[in-house]
């Protein structure tokens, strides 16, 4: 009866865990149930074909073990020419012990479901199967907390893997300041920042740290470098913040009971008739312009004049489009 791939993989795991020193490919083929053994009665051509089939199957299985999270150690022996042997170190391969409280278990279960259907969603589910292997059934607590499933972009998933493997990647990027270009970078960190995701990486062409907004990656992320080709610094020269812009200060007039976010961000600066005046410092000029526009007439830029003009220009452009003359 043919042995299923799962049974063969289990047999391989158990064999590599129990081997004293190592097992070579020949050892594995000869002794692990599920592989096609050497058949002495076969003619040379058939034997060669079968060997090639075995090699392909074994390479695939090794890759599957890696994806399962099992580190396979390669052991070379000088006594036997330079042939390669393999083993699994049980202490390295075993799930590390973590004592989750019932409410922690519940929230980990929610987290595992958070990316369902998205890239990395399957990985999160598998992580939950592992974590819950040690939890008694029904142990998790009911929480007054729920999540809508979120999407993580394919780009983010590919970059997470590239960071793990320390492998350079290439992608198309739509930059706000310098247009579209192909970027080759060594990914360092993914930053989650209130709904927006960023990549901090070393830009190989620009020879400097750069921060990329993941939503502006317009192509698939291709792994182009060799694994383990760079070190990820423990200290980041440019810090770990999405990049800042120019800074300035504006005076904004606000209708009473309007613009509370701007009021909270700024300081009271008197009144102008019905309007309250507020001095607002800003990091991104775009942000302040956007906030004033969004208030739809309940806010008015007093100064600087050029920002005031911009707001008017934007509103006029919006009117054109709204009237179908865009």
């Amino acid at each position: 009866m043919a042995v299923s791939p799962e049974e063969r993989l289990l047999n391989l795991i158990i064999a590599l865990m129990h081997t004293r020193v190592r097992m070579t490919k020949d050892d594995i083929r000869a002794s692990v149930a599920g592989y096609d053994r050497v058949d002495d009665s076969a003619d040379e051509a058939t034997a060669k074909k079968r060997k090639a089939t075995f090699e392909r199957m074994f390479e695939r299985d090794k890759d599957t073990l890696r994806r399962l999270g099992i580190p396979v150690v390669t052991v070379r022996s000088q006594a036997h020419g330079d042939d390669i042997g393999y083993r699994i170190d049980p202490s390295q391969a075993t799930l590390p012990p973590i004592d989750f409280t019932p409410s922690e278990s519940a929230v980990v279960a929610l987290a595992a479901d958070y990316w369902r259907g998205a890239a990395l969603g399957a990985d999160a589910s598998l992580a939950w199967v592992k974590a819950s292997s040690r939890m008694a059934h029904g142990q998790a607590e009911e929480l007054p907390f729920a999540t809508a499933q979120a999407r993580l972009s394919d780009a983010a998933a590919a970059l997470v893997e590239a960071i793990q493997l320390r492998q350079a990647v290439t992608f198309e990027y739509a930059s706000a300041s310098s247009g579209d270009a192909t970027r080759t970078v060594q990914p360092w960190r993914i930053l989650l920042s209130g709904g927006a995701d960023y990549l901090v990486a070393f830009d190989v062409d620009r020879e400097a740290q750069r921060t990329f907004r993941l939503s502006r990656v317009t192509s698939t992320v291709k792994l182009t470098g060799l694994p383990g080709a760079y070190e990820i610094p423990t200290h980041f020269p440019g810090g770990l913040k999405p990049a800042g812009d120019t800074q300035g200060e504006a005076i904004v007039a606000l209708r009473p009971e309007a613009g509370h976010a701007l009021r909270n961000a700024g300081s009271h600066a008197g009144a102008d008739g019905d309007w309250d005046l507020v001095t607002v410092p800003y990091v991104h000029r775009d942000d302040l312009r956007g906030q004033v526009l969004a208030l739809g007439g309940a806010a008015r830029i007093v100064e600087p004049q050029d920002l005031r003009d911009e707001v008017a220009t934007y509103a006029a452009a919006a009117l054109e489009v709204a009237h179908g003359r865009g």
């Binding site: 994806r67 999270g69 990316w115 992580a127």
Partner: peptide
């Protein structure tokens, strides 16, 4: 036969930790 659950793969760890971080 000495078998136990195995450790998180790098992608699994990143997926779980990333989702928890996002929450």
């Amino acid at each position: 036969q000495g078998l136990r659950q195995v450790s998180y793969s790098p992608r699994e760890a990143a997926a779980l930790i990333g989702a928890l971080s996002a929450l």
